[in-house]
Design a protein around this nucleic acid. Structure first.
Lengths: 196, 196
DNA sequence: TTCGTCATGTAATGGGTTACATGATTAC
DNA sequence: GTAATCATGTAACCCATTACATGACGAA
Protein backbone atom coordinates (compact mmCIF):
# COMPACT_ATOMS: atom_id res chain seq x y z
CA UNK A 1 0.00 0.00 0.00
CA UNK A 2 2.46 2.57 1.20
CA UNK A 3 4.89 1.01 -1.22
CA UNK A 4 2.63 1.65 -4.18
CA UNK A 5 2.01 5.22 -3.09
CA UNK A 6 5.73 5.82 -2.77
CA UNK A 7 6.51 4.27 -6.13
CA UNK A 8 3.81 6.37 -7.70
CA UNK A 9 5.12 9.60 -6.26
CA UNK A 10 8.74 8.87 -7.03
CA UNK A 11 7.77 8.13 -10.59
CA UNK A 12 7.01 11.80 -11.02
CA UNK A 13 10.14 13.10 -9.37
CA UNK A 14 12.81 12.15 -6.83
CA UNK A 15 11.91 13.06 -3.27
CA UNK A 16 13.16 12.62 0.25
CA UNK A 17 11.19 11.00 3.05
CA UNK A 18 9.85 14.08 4.70
CA UNK A 19 8.65 15.61 1.48
CA UNK A 20 7.21 12.29 0.44
CA UNK A 21 4.98 12.39 3.45
CA UNK A 22 3.74 15.89 2.68
CA UNK A 23 2.91 14.79 -0.82
CA UNK A 24 1.15 11.74 0.50
CA UNK A 25 -1.03 13.97 2.63
CA UNK A 26 -1.64 16.29 -0.29
CA UNK A 27 -2.69 13.57 -2.69
CA UNK A 28 -4.62 11.32 -0.36
CA UNK A 29 -6.36 14.08 1.52
CA UNK A 30 -9.11 12.74 3.74
CA UNK A 31 -8.48 9.16 2.81
CA UNK A 32 -5.36 8.23 4.60
CA UNK A 33 -2.36 9.50 6.47
CA UNK A 34 0.85 7.61 6.99
CA UNK A 35 3.21 8.30 9.83
CA UNK A 36 6.97 8.60 9.59
CA UNK A 37 7.16 5.52 11.73
CA UNK A 38 5.90 3.50 8.83
CA UNK A 39 7.31 5.57 6.02
CA UNK A 40 11.00 5.37 6.87
CA UNK A 41 11.10 1.61 7.47
CA UNK A 42 9.21 1.19 4.22
CA UNK A 43 11.74 3.30 2.33
CA UNK A 44 14.47 1.20 3.78
CA UNK A 45 12.81 -2.04 2.74
CA UNK A 46 12.21 -0.68 -0.72
CA UNK A 47 15.81 0.37 -1.04
CA UNK A 48 16.95 -3.07 0.13
CA UNK A 49 14.62 -4.59 -2.43
CA UNK A 50 16.24 -2.47 -5.10
CA UNK A 51 13.13 -0.56 -6.11
CA UNK A 52 14.50 2.80 -5.10
CA UNK A 53 17.97 4.24 -4.69
CA UNK A 54 19.54 7.33 -3.25
CA UNK A 55 19.68 10.03 -5.83
CA UNK A 56 23.18 11.36 -6.26
CA UNK A 57 22.08 13.85 -8.86
CA UNK A 58 21.19 15.84 -5.80
CA UNK A 59 23.91 18.50 -6.11
CA UNK A 60 23.49 21.63 -4.02
CA UNK A 61 24.63 19.33 -1.26
CA UNK A 62 27.92 21.06 -1.10
CA UNK A 63 29.58 24.30 -2.03
CA UNK A 64 31.94 24.13 0.87
CA UNK A 65 32.46 21.46 3.45
CA UNK A 66 29.90 18.69 3.68
CA UNK A 67 30.37 14.93 3.64
CA UNK A 68 32.00 15.02 7.05
CA UNK A 69 28.69 14.34 8.68
CA UNK A 70 28.24 10.59 8.50
CA UNK A 71 24.91 10.98 6.77
CA UNK A 72 22.78 13.60 8.25
CA UNK A 73 20.90 15.53 5.68
CA UNK A 74 18.25 14.84 3.14
CA UNK A 75 18.22 11.43 1.59
CA UNK A 76 16.64 11.83 -1.79
CA UNK A 77 15.27 8.70 -3.37
CA UNK A 78 14.52 7.96 -6.98
CA UNK A 79 13.03 4.98 -8.78
CA UNK A 80 15.33 2.30 -10.15
CA UNK A 81 14.54 0.26 -13.25
CA UNK A 82 13.23 -2.52 -10.99
CA UNK A 83 11.14 0.04 -9.21
CA UNK A 84 9.55 1.13 -12.43
CA UNK A 85 8.80 -2.45 -13.30
CA UNK A 86 7.29 -3.06 -9.92
CA UNK A 87 5.18 0.06 -10.22
CA UNK A 88 3.90 -0.99 -13.64
CA UNK A 89 3.07 -4.40 -12.22
CA UNK A 90 1.15 -2.95 -9.29
CA UNK A 91 -0.68 -0.47 -11.48
CA UNK A 92 -1.78 -3.28 -13.78
CA UNK A 93 -3.56 -5.09 -10.97
CA UNK A 94 -7.28 -4.86 -11.37
CA UNK A 95 -8.39 -7.15 -8.56
CA UNK A 96 -9.65 -6.77 -5.02
CA UNK A 97 -6.21 -5.55 -4.00
CA UNK A 98 -7.03 -2.43 -5.98
CA UNK A 99 -10.58 -1.76 -4.91
CA UNK A 100 -10.83 -2.61 -1.25
CA UNK A 101 -11.36 0.21 1.22
CA UNK A 102 -7.76 0.59 2.32
CA UNK A 103 -6.26 0.41 -1.15
CA UNK A 104 -8.70 2.05 -3.50
CA UNK A 105 -7.73 5.60 -2.65
CA UNK A 106 -4.08 5.03 -3.41
CA UNK A 107 -4.83 3.32 -6.70
CA UNK A 108 -7.18 6.11 -7.61
CA UNK A 109 -4.61 8.83 -7.06
CA UNK A 110 -2.42 7.00 -9.54
CA UNK A 111 -5.09 6.70 -12.20
CA UNK A 112 -3.30 9.23 -14.37
CA UNK A 113 -0.50 6.66 -14.63
CA UNK A 114 -2.88 3.74 -15.04
CA UNK A 115 -4.06 2.00 -18.18
CA UNK A 116 -7.59 3.18 -19.11
CA UNK A 117 -8.97 -0.36 -19.23
CA UNK A 118 -7.57 -1.11 -15.82
CA UNK A 119 -9.09 2.10 -14.50
CA UNK A 120 -12.56 1.08 -15.58
CA UNK A 121 -12.18 -2.41 -14.17
CA UNK A 122 -11.09 -1.04 -10.83
CA UNK A 123 -13.95 1.42 -10.71
CA UNK A 124 -16.43 -1.31 -11.59
CA UNK A 125 -14.86 -3.68 -9.09
CA UNK A 126 -15.17 -1.15 -6.34
CA UNK A 127 -18.71 -0.36 -7.30
CA UNK A 128 -19.87 -3.96 -7.16
CA UNK A 129 -17.99 -4.43 -3.93
CA UNK A 130 -19.95 -1.55 -2.46
CA UNK A 131 -23.21 -2.73 -3.91
CA UNK A 132 -22.63 -6.13 -2.42
CA UNK A 133 -21.94 -4.66 0.96
CA UNK A 134 -24.95 -2.42 0.68
CA UNK A 135 -27.25 -5.33 -0.11
CA UNK A 136 -25.81 -7.33 2.75
CA UNK A 137 -26.45 -4.50 5.16
CA UNK A 138 -29.90 -3.85 3.75
CA UNK A 139 -30.77 -7.52 4.17
CA UNK A 140 -29.67 -7.79 7.79
CA UNK A 141 -31.24 -4.42 8.45
CA UNK A 142 -34.56 -5.69 7.13
CA UNK A 143 -34.33 -8.70 9.44
CA UNK A 144 -33.25 -6.83 12.54
CA UNK A 145 -34.63 -3.32 12.12
CA UNK A 146 -37.29 -3.80 14.80
CA UNK A 147 -34.75 -4.82 17.43
CA UNK A 148 -32.42 -1.87 16.88
CA UNK A 149 -32.54 1.31 18.88
CA UNK A 150 -32.90 4.62 17.08
CA UNK A 151 -29.21 5.55 17.32
CA UNK A 152 -28.05 2.34 15.77
CA UNK A 153 -30.67 2.78 13.12
CA UNK A 154 -29.54 6.28 12.30
CA UNK A 155 -25.99 5.08 11.98
CA UNK A 156 -27.09 2.35 9.59
CA UNK A 157 -29.01 4.75 7.47
CA UNK A 158 -26.24 7.28 7.36
CA UNK A 159 -23.89 4.48 6.37
CA UNK A 160 -26.16 3.29 3.61
CA UNK A 161 -26.51 6.78 2.24
CA UNK A 162 -22.75 7.18 2.22
CA UNK A 163 -22.40 3.98 0.25
CA UNK A 164 -25.13 5.06 -2.15
CA UNK A 165 -23.34 8.30 -2.67
CA UNK A 166 -20.07 6.63 -3.46
CA UNK A 167 -21.80 4.24 -5.85
CA UNK A 168 -23.28 7.17 -7.73
CA UNK A 169 -19.92 8.87 -7.84
CA UNK A 170 -18.32 5.74 -9.24
CA UNK A 171 -21.05 5.37 -11.82
CA UNK A 172 -20.42 8.85 -13.09
CA UNK A 173 -16.70 8.22 -13.26
CA UNK A 174 -17.26 5.00 -15.17
CA UNK A 175 -19.46 6.73 -17.66
CA UNK A 176 -16.90 9.43 -18.19
CA UNK A 177 -14.21 6.82 -18.70
CA UNK A 178 -16.36 4.99 -21.22
CA UNK A 179 -17.01 8.17 -23.12
CA UNK A 180 -13.32 8.91 -23.39
CA UNK A 181 -12.31 5.37 -24.25
CA UNK A 182 -13.75 4.05 -27.52
CA UNK A 183 -16.13 1.12 -27.07
CA UNK A 184 -14.33 -2.14 -26.57
CA UNK A 185 -15.62 -5.70 -26.46
CA UNK A 186 -15.13 -7.44 -23.16
CA UNK A 187 -13.55 -10.87 -23.09
CA UNK A 188 -10.79 -12.55 -25.03
CA UNK A 189 -10.76 -10.31 -28.06
CA UNK A 190 -8.26 -7.67 -27.16
CA UNK A 191 -8.06 -5.71 -30.33
CA UNK A 192 -6.59 -2.32 -29.67
CA UNK A 193 -8.90 0.38 -30.89
CA UNK A 194 -7.13 3.08 -32.81
CA UNK A 195 -7.58 6.69 -31.90
CA UNK A 196 -9.03 8.77 -34.79
CA UNK B 1 -12.66 -1.34 20.53
CA UNK B 2 -13.90 -4.83 20.01
CA UNK B 3 -13.98 -5.09 23.76
CA UNK B 4 -16.32 -2.16 24.10
CA UNK B 5 -18.59 -3.51 21.40
CA UNK B 6 -18.72 -6.88 23.10
CA UNK B 7 -19.41 -5.40 26.53
CA UNK B 8 -22.17 -3.29 25.04
CA UNK B 9 -23.86 -6.22 23.37
CA UNK B 10 -23.56 -8.51 26.35
CA UNK B 11 -25.10 -5.83 28.49
CA UNK B 12 -28.34 -6.41 26.66
CA UNK B 13 -28.28 -10.18 26.82
CA UNK B 14 -25.90 -13.13 27.14
CA UNK B 15 -24.59 -14.36 23.81
CA UNK B 16 -22.10 -16.82 22.40
CA UNK B 17 -19.24 -15.90 20.10
CA UNK B 18 -20.81 -16.73 16.81
CA UNK B 19 -23.99 -14.87 17.56
CA UNK B 20 -21.98 -11.97 18.91
CA UNK B 21 -20.39 -11.59 15.54
CA UNK B 22 -23.72 -11.57 13.73
CA UNK B 23 -24.94 -8.89 16.07
CA UNK B 24 -21.77 -6.92 15.55
CA UNK B 25 -22.42 -6.97 11.82
CA UNK B 26 -26.03 -6.03 12.35
CA UNK B 27 -25.31 -3.06 14.58
CA UNK B 28 -22.20 -1.73 12.90
CA UNK B 29 -23.41 -2.21 9.37
CA UNK B 30 -21.14 -0.52 6.87
CA UNK B 31 -18.77 0.75 9.48
CA UNK B 32 -16.83 -2.24 10.57
CA UNK B 33 -16.62 -6.00 10.49
CA UNK B 34 -14.65 -8.08 12.92
CA UNK B 35 -13.42 -11.55 12.10
CA UNK B 36 -13.63 -14.58 14.33
CA UNK B 37 -9.90 -14.56 14.43
CA UNK B 38 -10.02 -11.46 16.54
CA UNK B 39 -13.29 -12.10 18.31
CA UNK B 40 -12.45 -15.37 20.02
CA UNK B 41 -9.07 -14.33 21.37
CA UNK B 42 -10.72 -11.15 22.61
CA UNK B 43 -13.42 -13.11 24.40
CA UNK B 44 -10.75 -15.19 26.01
CA UNK B 45 -8.83 -12.15 27.19
CA UNK B 46 -11.98 -10.59 28.52
CA UNK B 47 -12.85 -13.75 30.38
CA UNK B 48 -9.34 -13.90 31.85
CA UNK B 49 -9.72 -10.28 32.88
CA UNK B 50 -12.94 -11.18 34.66
CA UNK B 51 -15.21 -8.91 32.61
CA UNK B 52 -17.26 -11.73 31.22
CA UNK B 53 -18.04 -15.26 32.34
CA UNK B 54 -19.60 -18.35 30.89
CA UNK B 55 -23.29 -18.28 31.47
CA UNK B 56 -24.46 -21.44 33.23
CA UNK B 57 -28.06 -20.30 33.16
CA UNK B 58 -27.85 -21.74 29.72
CA UNK B 59 -30.01 -24.84 30.28
CA UNK B 60 -31.14 -26.70 27.20
CA UNK B 61 -27.59 -27.92 27.20
CA UNK B 62 -28.74 -31.32 28.17
CA UNK B 63 -31.86 -33.47 28.12
CA UNK B 64 -29.87 -36.61 27.61
CA UNK B 65 -26.18 -37.19 27.43
CA UNK B 66 -23.96 -34.13 27.01
CA UNK B 67 -21.05 -33.03 29.14
CA UNK B 68 -18.96 -35.93 27.89
CA UNK B 69 -17.61 -33.76 25.13
CA UNK B 70 -14.80 -31.82 26.73
CA UNK B 71 -16.38 -28.56 25.66
CA UNK B 72 -17.75 -28.57 22.24
CA UNK B 73 -20.91 -26.61 21.96
CA UNK B 74 -21.96 -23.06 22.43
CA UNK B 75 -20.13 -21.05 25.03
CA UNK B 76 -22.51 -18.40 26.19
CA UNK B 77 -20.99 -15.37 27.84
CA UNK B 78 -22.53 -12.83 30.14
CA UNK B 79 -21.27 -9.69 31.82
CA UNK B 80 -19.82 -9.90 35.30
CA UNK B 81 -20.02 -7.09 37.85
CA UNK B 82 -16.52 -6.02 36.84
CA UNK B 83 -17.60 -6.12 33.24
CA UNK B 84 -20.46 -3.78 33.94
CA UNK B 85 -18.13 -1.42 35.71
CA UNK B 86 -15.70 -1.52 32.84
CA UNK B 87 -18.50 -0.86 30.39
CA UNK B 88 -19.73 2.12 32.38
CA UNK B 89 -16.19 3.45 32.48
CA UNK B 90 -15.71 3.12 28.75
CA UNK B 91 -19.09 4.66 28.00
CA UNK B 92 -18.23 7.64 30.16
CA UNK B 93 -15.20 8.48 28.08
CA UNK B 94 -15.78 11.57 26.01
CA UNK B 95 -12.32 12.07 24.55
CA UNK B 96 -10.61 11.30 21.26
CA UNK B 97 -10.84 7.62 22.09
CA UNK B 98 -14.55 8.00 21.48
CA UNK B 99 -14.62 10.13 18.36
CA UNK B 100 -11.76 8.97 16.18
CA UNK B 101 -12.61 7.19 12.95
CA UNK B 102 -12.10 3.65 14.18
CA UNK B 103 -13.95 4.10 17.44
CA UNK B 104 -16.76 6.52 16.80
CA UNK B 105 -19.10 4.00 15.21
CA UNK B 106 -18.90 1.61 18.11
CA UNK B 107 -19.51 4.37 20.64
CA UNK B 108 -22.40 5.63 18.59
CA UNK B 109 -24.14 2.27 18.50
CA UNK B 110 -24.04 2.33 22.29
CA UNK B 111 -25.49 5.81 22.61
CA UNK B 112 -28.72 4.40 23.96
CA UNK B 113 -26.69 3.24 26.97
CA UNK B 114 -24.69 6.45 27.16
CA UNK B 115 -25.20 9.49 29.33
CA UNK B 116 -26.84 12.33 27.33
CA UNK B 117 -24.14 14.83 28.18
CA UNK B 118 -21.45 12.43 27.10
CA UNK B 119 -23.33 11.83 23.87
CA UNK B 120 -23.28 15.49 22.99
CA UNK B 121 -19.64 15.87 23.87
CA UNK B 122 -18.72 12.94 21.67
CA UNK B 123 -20.75 14.28 18.77
CA UNK B 124 -19.17 17.69 19.14
CA UNK B 125 -15.74 16.20 19.48
CA UNK B 126 -16.15 14.22 16.32
CA UNK B 127 -17.51 17.22 14.51
CA UNK B 128 -14.59 19.44 15.38
CA UNK B 129 -12.21 16.62 14.55
CA UNK B 130 -13.75 16.45 11.09
CA UNK B 131 -13.79 20.20 10.67
CA UNK B 132 -10.15 20.34 11.57
CA UNK B 133 -9.31 17.68 9.07
CA UNK B 134 -11.41 19.39 6.45
CA UNK B 135 -9.64 22.68 6.95
CA UNK B 136 -6.28 20.99 6.81
CA UNK B 137 -7.15 19.36 3.53
CA UNK B 138 -8.65 22.52 2.12
CA UNK B 139 -5.48 24.41 3.01
CA UNK B 140 -3.08 21.97 1.38
CA UNK B 141 -5.46 21.67 -1.53
CA UNK B 142 -5.38 25.42 -2.03
CA UNK B 143 -1.59 25.32 -2.04
CA UNK B 144 -1.21 22.32 -4.32
CA UNK B 145 -4.34 22.30 -6.47
CA UNK B 146 -2.46 23.40 -9.59
CA UNK B 147 0.02 20.56 -9.37
CA UNK B 148 -2.57 17.79 -8.98
CA UNK B 149 -3.97 15.76 -11.84
CA UNK B 150 -7.70 15.63 -12.36
CA UNK B 151 -8.15 12.20 -10.77
CA UNK B 152 -6.45 13.18 -7.58
CA UNK B 153 -8.48 16.35 -7.58
CA UNK B 154 -11.72 14.49 -7.97
CA UNK B 155 -10.80 12.22 -5.10
CA UNK B 156 -10.07 15.23 -2.91
CA UNK B 157 -13.33 16.83 -3.75
CA UNK B 158 -15.31 13.69 -3.18
CA UNK B 159 -13.55 13.31 0.15
CA UNK B 160 -14.30 16.85 1.18
CA UNK B 161 -17.95 16.44 0.30
CA UNK B 162 -18.12 13.27 2.35
CA UNK B 163 -16.70 15.08 5.32
CA UNK B 164 -19.10 17.97 4.81
CA UNK B 165 -21.95 15.55 4.74
CA UNK B 166 -20.93 13.92 7.97
CA UNK B 167 -20.49 17.31 9.60
CA UNK B 168 -24.04 18.26 8.65
CA UNK B 169 -25.32 14.94 9.94
CA UNK B 170 -23.56 15.47 13.24
CA UNK B 171 -24.90 18.99 13.51
CA UNK B 172 -28.42 17.73 13.14
CA UNK B 173 -27.84 15.06 15.74
CA UNK B 174 -26.40 17.59 18.15
CA UNK B 175 -29.37 19.87 17.71
CA UNK B 176 -31.75 17.02 18.35
CA UNK B 177 -29.83 16.06 21.46
CA UNK B 178 -29.94 19.65 22.70
CA UNK B 179 -33.64 19.84 22.13
CA UNK B 180 -34.23 16.73 24.18
CA UNK B 181 -31.84 17.67 26.93
CA UNK B 182 -32.73 20.88 28.76
CA UNK B 183 -30.19 23.68 28.30
CA UNK B 184 -27.16 23.34 30.50
CA UNK B 185 -24.35 25.76 31.14
CA UNK B 186 -20.94 24.60 30.03
CA UNK B 187 -18.04 24.79 32.42
CA UNK B 188 -17.72 24.39 36.15
CA UNK B 189 -21.30 25.09 37.12
CA UNK B 190 -22.88 21.69 36.91
CA UNK B 191 -26.33 22.40 38.17
CA UNK B 192 -28.68 19.64 37.14
CA UNK B 193 -31.61 21.07 35.28
CA UNK B 194 -34.92 19.65 36.35
CA UNK B 195 -37.33 18.20 33.84
CA UNK B 196 -40.63 20.17 33.70
C1' DT C 1 -24.84 -39.13 3.18
C1' DT C 2 -23.42 -35.08 2.10
C1' DC C 3 -23.88 -30.22 2.03
C1' DG C 4 -24.45 -25.87 4.20
C1' DT C 5 -24.21 -23.22 8.17
C1' DC C 6 -23.49 -23.05 12.89
C1' DA C 7 -19.73 -22.96 16.10
C1' DT C 8 -15.01 -22.59 18.24
C1' DG C 9 -10.57 -22.00 18.05
C1' DT C 10 -5.09 -21.32 16.78
C1' DA C 11 -0.71 -19.70 14.31
C1' DA C 12 1.48 -16.84 11.48
C1' DT C 13 1.64 -12.53 9.86
C1' DG C 14 0.74 -7.85 8.62
C1' DG C 15 0.77 -3.22 8.42
C1' DG C 16 0.56 -0.02 10.56
C1' DT C 17 0.85 3.50 15.23
C1' DT C 18 2.90 6.03 19.28
C1' DA C 19 6.49 7.66 21.59
C1' DC C 20 10.91 8.64 21.64
C1' DA C 21 15.64 10.32 20.30
C1' DT C 22 18.41 13.24 17.61
C1' DG C 23 20.23 16.66 14.68
C1' DA C 24 20.13 20.42 10.86
C1' DT C 25 18.24 24.71 9.09
C1' DT C 26 15.65 28.86 9.04
C1' DA C 27 13.41 33.00 10.79
C1' DC C 28 13.04 36.26 14.21
C1' DG D 1 20.27 32.54 20.76
C1' DT D 2 16.14 30.27 20.64
C1' DA D 3 11.94 28.55 18.79
C1' DA D 4 9.75 26.38 14.96
C1' DT D 5 9.92 23.27 11.51
C1' DC D 6 12.55 20.42 8.59
C1' DA D 7 14.51 15.86 8.56
C1' DT D 8 15.65 11.00 9.80
C1' DG D 9 15.29 7.21 12.29
C1' DT D 10 14.19 3.20 16.00
C1' DA D 11 11.63 0.21 19.40
C1' DA D 12 7.76 -1.33 21.40
C1' DC D 13 3.44 -2.39 20.67
C1' DC D 14 -1.41 -2.97 18.92
C1' DC D 15 -5.13 -4.66 16.92
C1' DA D 16 -6.47 -6.82 13.80
C1' DT D 17 -6.47 -10.25 9.46
C1' DT D 18 -5.89 -14.63 6.75
C1' DA D 19 -5.68 -19.26 6.52
C1' DC D 20 -6.28 -23.21 8.62
C1' DA D 21 -8.23 -27.07 11.54
C1' DT D 22 -12.01 -29.13 13.77
C1' DG D 23 -16.44 -30.62 14.78
C1' DA D 24 -21.75 -30.57 15.63
C1' DC D 25 -26.26 -30.42 13.55
C1' DG D 26 -30.12 -29.99 10.43
C1' DA D 27 -32.14 -30.43 5.90
C1' DA D 28 -32.18 -32.37 1.20
Amino acid sequence: MLELAVLGLLHESPLHGYELRQRLKATLGTFRAFSYGSLYPTLRRMRDAGWIAEDEGDAEVVAGAPALTGRRGKVVYKLTAEGKEKLAELLAEAGPSAWEDETFGVHFTLFAQTDPEVRVRILEGRRSRLEERREGVRATLARTRARLDSYTLQLQEHGLESVDREVRWLTELIETERKNTPARSTGTTSKKAARP
